[in-house]
Every structure is written in structure tokens, then in C-alpha cells.
């Protein structure tokens, strides 16, 4: 199915957020996630199922003022 990862269309076969992150190159990465604009805690990712057209935001630490 098609999802939008950080604004870009991607095809994933994974059914859950956790599995999608692993498939998209974020295995073991320190990241935080939001699905359709809502925060999804790390512990809730395996039970969070994805649907066609979902938007996923994946963020990591960066420089800031």
C-alpha cells in the first residue's frame, strides 16, 4: 500500500508502524513518530496498524536554538 513518509510517497508491505519503520531503514534508530499528525509512542508502534494513504512523520534529534 502507499503511505507518505515525511511527505514522500512510499510503497510498504508492512501492516504495522513498527514493521514499516524497520522496512524503511529505521531499525534501531533513535526516532519519534507521528501517524496522521498524532504522536505514537515507541511502545505503541507494534500495535499501530497502517492504512492506505497514511502519513507518517519520523523525526530525530537535530541542532536547535
Amino acid at each position: 500500500m502507499q503511505i507518505f513518509l515525511n511527505g514522500k510517497a512510499r510503497e510498504v508491505e508492512a501492516a504495522t508502524l513498527d514493521a514499516a519503520l524497520n522496512a524503511l531503514g529505521f531499525r534501531d534508530a533513535v526516532v519519534a513518530t507521528a501517524l496522521n499528525g498524532r504522536f505514537v509512542a515507541k511502545g505503541a508502534r507494534p500495535a499501530t496498524t497502517l492504512a492506505e494513504g497514511d502519513t507518517i512523520e519520523v523525526v530525530a534529534p537535530l541542532q536547535g536554538g
Binding site: 513518509l5 519520523v58 530525530a60
Partner: peptide, 22 residues
């Protein structure tokens, strides 16, 4: 020190290096 959050690329993983550095 102040830090921020930005979109991470699964290919580049730039945030991972920054986090270890901090």
C-alpha cells in the same frame, strides 16, 4: 543546550550521529 527535532531519512540517519555527539 537546546536541541530540536527534524525529519529523519532512513538512508542518511543524520540525527543518529548528532544524538551520539550531544
Amino acid at each position: 543546550v537546546t536541541v530540536s527535532l527534524r525529519r529523519e531519512s532512513g538512508a542518511q540517519r543524520a540525527g543518529q550521529a548528532f544524538w551520539s555527539f550531544i
